[in-house]
């Protein structure tokens, strides 16, 4: 971290701080406060009716479970990919490594569009799954699949640097001291990899909870069945039920702030272990 300077030694403190606080308030804080105030304009009973209706609970449950499953799958996929990219050389390794970042750069609408077409019953992949009775597009599985895509880079990119920094000597020492391959993995590698993998998991999970663009393409968005929380907010807005939409948004915001706190704690844990 850089060193702070006496306020008189360098110019621009007043102007810079003033503009920073003004812009932060105008773009982020006041709009978010407006949302909370709108939800607070409801009576407690109305708030519960809006934010905790059967339909809303079904939507939270779907958002939560699909994001959770996708993040868990991403931990498994991410560990394999990160391990391989750090430890082995193979043709086109640089390309494979670069492709990992694509989900971060590709607009979510494009991801949704292409996944919906690939996994439709007549799509490139869907045509082989359909005869087996596996339906992906327009079902919960489709939602999980696009969330795996959008969250894919997180675990890879949190685990990769930790694995790369891991001292080979530590493992060698373990081997010299008579630890078997499995024992060295369990006692030496696993404890180091758990914090970054959990951070990646939490990032992917948080991302999946709020995802909208890709999901509306691959889901049929039917209330109680394939309607995620973000889709429910939009349909409340389209009915001009602003306060109800705000109430559901406040529940989502609360959930994501809890996750943000968890992610921050995990990061500190990672730094302490990985340092």
């Amino acid at each position: 971290m850089g060193s702070g300077v006496s306020r008189r030694a360098l110019p621009g403190f007043g102007l810079g701080l003033g503009y920073t606080v003004f812009y932060l308030s105008a773009i982020v804080l006041i709009p978010l406060a407006a949302c909370v105030l709108k939800a607070a304009s409801l009576s407690p009973a109305e708030f519960l009716a809006a934010a905790w209706s059967d339909r809303a609970r079904a939507a939270y449950a779907l958002s939560f479970t699909t994001a959770l499953v996708a993040a868990a799958v991403n931990v498994a996929l991410g560990l394999v990919v990160a391990w391989t990219l750090v430890r082995y050389d193979f043709p086109f390794k640089r390309l494979v490594d670069a492709l990992v970042d694509v989900p971060l750069a590709l607009p979510t609408a494009v991801a949704g569009l292409v996944y919906a077409s690939l996994y439709a019953p007549n799509g490139w992949v869907g045509q082989y799954l359909d005869p087996l009775g596996i339906k992906v597009a327009y079902t919960e599985s489709g939602i999980v699949l696009v969330l795996i895509f959008t969250g894919f880079p997180f675990v890879v990119r949190t685990v990769q640097p930790v694995l790369a920094d891991l001292d080979a000597e530590v493992e060698e020492a373990a081997a010299v001291l008579g630890a078997g391959r499995w024992q060295a993995f369990r006692r030496v590698l696993l404890p180091t990899l758990i914090p970054p993998a959990l951070t990646g998991f939490a990032l992917a999970f948080a991302r999946g909870l709020g995802e909208y663009g890709s999901v509306i393409f691959v889901s049929s968005n039917i209330p109680y069945k394939t309607e995620i929380a973000a889709v429910l907010i939009v349909s409340r807005l389209e009915e001009y039920s602003y306060a109800e939409a705000a109430a559901i948004a406040v529940v989502l915001l609360a959930l994501s702030f809890v996750l943000l706190a968890v992610i921050n704690l995990l990061e500190r844990w990672t730094q302490r272990h990985g340092g």
Binding site: P31, C35, A229, A249
Partner: peptide, 23 residues
């Protein structure tokens, strides 16, 4: 201030739109 700058990353895009509809 540092924490608040990161705040928009943890808000669902739909909620980000919603707040301006409410305003």
């Amino acid at each position: 201030l540092v924490t608040l700058i990161d705040l928009p990353f943890s808000v669902s895009p739909v909620v980000a739109g919603l707040v301006f509809v409410l305003l």
